[in-house]
Every structure is written in structure tokens, then in C-alpha cells.
Amino acid sequence: MLTSEVNRRKPNEKNGSTGLFNQLSRRTVNRSADKMLSRLALRNAQALPAIAHGAQALSSSSEASNRPVRAEFGGKVRLGFIPDEWFTYFYPKTGVTGPYAFGLGLTTYLVSKEIYVMEHEYYTGLSILLMCIYGVKKFGPAVAAYADKLIDEQITDLNESKNSEIEYYESSIKDEKHSQWQAEGQTLLMEAKKQNIAMQLEAAYRERLAHVYSEVKKRLDYQVQIQAIERRISQKHMSEWIISNVLKSITPEQEKATLQQCIVDLQGLAART
């Protein structure tokens, strides 16, 4: 009986150190949930190196610095198409007017020597150039505004879809954490149920213990009573037997003598008072 009690107590003692109320602390639960998540991520990373590699390429900052960035505006140009670098290249040697002087001088040279021949295509080109300049000056700003609006819309759409995706995943991560926290609560509930059952078992055990005690006591009391009764009966029997025997042994002479003696005694007593 003693060993069974010890065995039954053991699980309770084990749980005693991490009590129900200790575990109820939300912080502990959350931290353990985080740990679980990170451990899960680590395990997945080990299991799926390719995916993890892709994720790293997307997330880590050193990789992000390698990512080419789309320029906001095009390279600076002068006269509509000549790169600004061409002009700045001249500045240290010739000053600010140098590139223009070079261009003009080269054109003059080519034209005057008729290396550049002004045939009919030249005049066609000149008129087309004038039309182009007029068109750019006239319609350029409106087209630019329209294109800017278009690209802004496109980028807003893309960012929106990206952000909504991110939001969705963040919220699902939050939900996942929440459900993990809830699952943690389930273990607490289990714990409580186990404790409850242990308590019930304990109560049943004690009840039975009490029952056994009372039963044993009843039997012992019965034995005691039996013995007492036997003893009483035998005592009674014995005394009755002795009395009857004594009474039987008394003869009438003896009785008479006793009576006489009694009277004498009474007389003696009377005389004294």
C-alpha cells in the first residue's frame, strides 16, 4: 500500500516544479513560440538549401546592395541627345566653351572641305530635324506628364500588390504565432486535466483508505465485542454457579446460627447506643 502511494505521488511531484500558474505567464509562452518558429525555420533551411538560398538572396542586406537599382531619370544630355560627359570631358583642357568650339570647328571643317556633302538628303534631314524640334517642344511636356502619370500608376499598382502580399504573409505569421500560443494553452489545459484526474485518483484512494480503515475497525470491534460478551457470559455463569453452590452448601443449622449471631450483634449494638 505504501509503495503504490509513492508511485502515485511521483508524477504530481514532477509537475509540482512547473506549476500551472507558472506556465500561465504569457511572456514565457510567447518566447517559447518564437523559439519554436525560429527552430522550425532553421530546420527547413537545412532541409531545403535551394529555397533558403533564394530567401537569403531576397532578404540579406549584403545581397540587397548587389541588386541593381533602376534610375529615376536618364543620363544628362545637352542639345537633346549629346551626353553631358562629352562636354565635361573637355572642361579641364578647354574650359566651358571648348566642346562647342570643337563641334563647330569640326562641322565647319567637314563642310568647307566638302567631306560632309550637302546633297539633297541634308536638306531633308534639316527639315525633319526642325519638325522634330518643334514636335518635342510642343508636345513633349504633355507626353512627359502623361507618361509620368502612367509610370506612377504602374509603380503604385506593383507596390500595392507587393505590400498586400507582405501584409498577408505578416498577418498569417501573426495568426500562426497566435494559434501556436493557443496550442500552448491546450497543453496547459491538458496539464490541468491531468492534475484534475490525479486529484480525483487521490480522492478515490483516500476514500478507499478510509473505507478499509473503517472495515478493519468494524471487524476488530466485532472481535472485541465477541470477546467481551464471552467473558461476561462466562463470568456471569461462573458467579451464578458459585452463588448457587454456596447457597446449596448452607445448612439450616448454619442459617439459624447466623441469624442468632445477627440478633446478638444487633442487641450489642443497641446496648451501646
Binding site: R70, F73, G74, I155
Partner: peptide, 8 residues
């Protein structure tokens, strides 16, 4: 391929 290119 810039965001706000021109005619250049």
C-alpha cells in the same frame, strides 16, 4: 530603362 526617361 529609367523610370522617367526622355526623348534623348
Amino acid at each position: 530603362h529609367v523610370k522617367r526617361g526622355g526623348i534623348a
